[in-house]
């Protein structure tokens, strides 16, 4: 059995850890709130944008005129934008994303398709540094403050890859935010664009366009990619904080449990010590009597 002093030291250590996890939990909670607010503020824009694209694309008969809508005849190489957090200590959040990416890469390689990777997030960058995957570019520090400018830069770069033919398809893996307790690593195809025309494609309104239908759509399509990227970033950032909050909550409650069992061990050891001493005294007294 551990000595009294050892147990006591351990209890102190666990208590300190629980203070840290508790603080991290609260920090994550407040960051989560801001991140969620930002995401909600962006939501109407994304929604309207999708409606726009849906309506404009519904009237298109010949997709050949728009390079971003046209699927390549033969897919030889794909590009994957992988969004993860910059920091750890958030449960299985990053691992889930990395596993999803790994699986995607393996599947594509099995089909004989080359995959090049764009990492957004330090965890993704570190993970793929020593792995046999072609990493074309890496960004870090995006999720601290999700900004339209960043989404535009990344999106623009991806579009370039697609248009120059370096990539025949572009995908993104991000953490889809379902609710605070649930996030899911999701794979979405960015390019070529497949507009969600199902909603009200049946009622195409007769619009007046300015400058022209084609000019408008050509102008809108790249922006649509930016919006998609931005939304993925927002969702991942909210997911990161939610995930960290949950992980730290768990850690704190585990600490408490550990302190409880350790205190029990401590008291038992103390009691055993006292009993032993008593036995000695009683034994001594008995011996004197004789």
């Amino acid at each position: 059995m551990a000595t009294l002093r050892d147990v006591k030291r351990k209890i102190e250590a666990v208590k300190k850890t629980s203070q840290i996890t508790k603080a991290m939990n609260m920090v994550a909670a407040s960051k989560l709130r801001t991140a969620q607010q930002n995401m909600e503020k962006f939501h109407p824009y994304a929604l309207k944008f999708r409606e726009f694209i849906g309506r404009l694309a519904a009237g298109v008969e010949d997709t050949k005129a728009y390079s971003l809508l046209t699927p390549k005849e033969e897919v030889k190489s794909v590009e994957l934008l992988l969004i993860t957090a910059d920091r750890g200590l958030c449960g299985s959040f990053n691992t889930n994303l990395l596993v999803a990416a790994e699986r995607f890469i393996r599947a594509k390689k099995a089909e004989g398709i080359e995959v090049s990777l764009v990492n957004a997030g330090r965890k993704a960058k570190d993970y793929f540094r020593r792995r046999p995957v072609k990493v074309r570019d890496s960004y870090t520090g995006l999720l601290n403050k999700v900004a339209y400018e960043d989404a535009r830069r990344i999106g623009g770069d991806l579009i370039d890859q697609f248009e120059t033919g370096s990539a025949d398809e572009v995908y993104v893996i991000y953490s889809h935010f379902i609710n605070i307790a649930k996030q899911q690593a999701s794979l979405v195809k960015l390019l070529p664009i497949t507009p969600a025309a199902g909603e009200e494609g049946a009622t195409p309104f007769e619009y007046l366009f300015e400058p022209s239908h084609q000019a408008l759509l050509t102008d809108l399509l790249p922006n649509y990619i930016y919006v998609q990227v931005l939304e993925s970033l927002y969702q991942t950032s909210v997911g990161e904080h939610a995930s960290r909050m949950a992980a730290m909550e768990n850690a704190t409650s585990n600490c408490k449990e550990l302190v409880k069992t350790l205190t029990l061990t401590y008291n038992k050891a103390r009691q055993a010590g006292i009993t032993k001493e008593l036995m000695d005294i009683v034994g001594g007294a008995e011996a004197l009597k004789k």
Binding site: R55, L208, F209, E210, P211, L216
Partner: peptide, 8 residues
């Protein structure tokens, strides 16, 4: 009562 219109 404006007609449906899309523009940049």
């Amino acid at each position: 009562g404006h007609i449906a219109f899309l523009c940049k």
